[in-house]
Amino acid sequence: MKTYIKHILRFLVLVFIQLAIFDHLNFGFYIHPLIYILFLLKLPLNTPRWLLLVLAFVLGTTLDIFQSSPGINAAASVLVAFIRPFSIDLIFPRREFDENTEPSIDDFGFQRFFVFTLILTFVLHFILFFLEVFCFDELGKILVRSLASAFVTTLLIVLVELLFFRKKS
């Protein structure tokens, strides 16, 4: 029961931070960090895969309502939820840890956590920016934008991870 409340709180806090802070920051014209995806990344490894998809859809739709961009965030975050299990398999061909751990620097190691985050944030940004424009003319620009944004989002997520999610040892 406690874990449910923890995840619901995390959901609310991340959506609030995304809408109140990161949607208004202009780091430069190409960068638009989407920190809210941390909620999906931090779900426990034994979360049923269908639940991942449903939660991603709810998360995306919540953001869509506030950003008035119907379907865009939802489509992108559902895709991220879809590839999350595969990317974990890719990074860890053999599972070496307890199934109900959350992806974290402590359990994944810094490098692997970084790569894991970078892959998923890149997919999120690329799909999102692409759907926003919806034409192939600007593909190069979208690619640069999503690479830069994914990198910044990843840095922010690693920072949050280091500050708030380290186990006290």
Binding site: S69, G71, A74, A75, V78
Partner: peptide
Amino acid sequence: LLEIISFLLIFSFN
């Protein structure tokens, strides 16, 4: 299913 719903939203309202 979820992607189709999202795309319907995108196409019908965007």
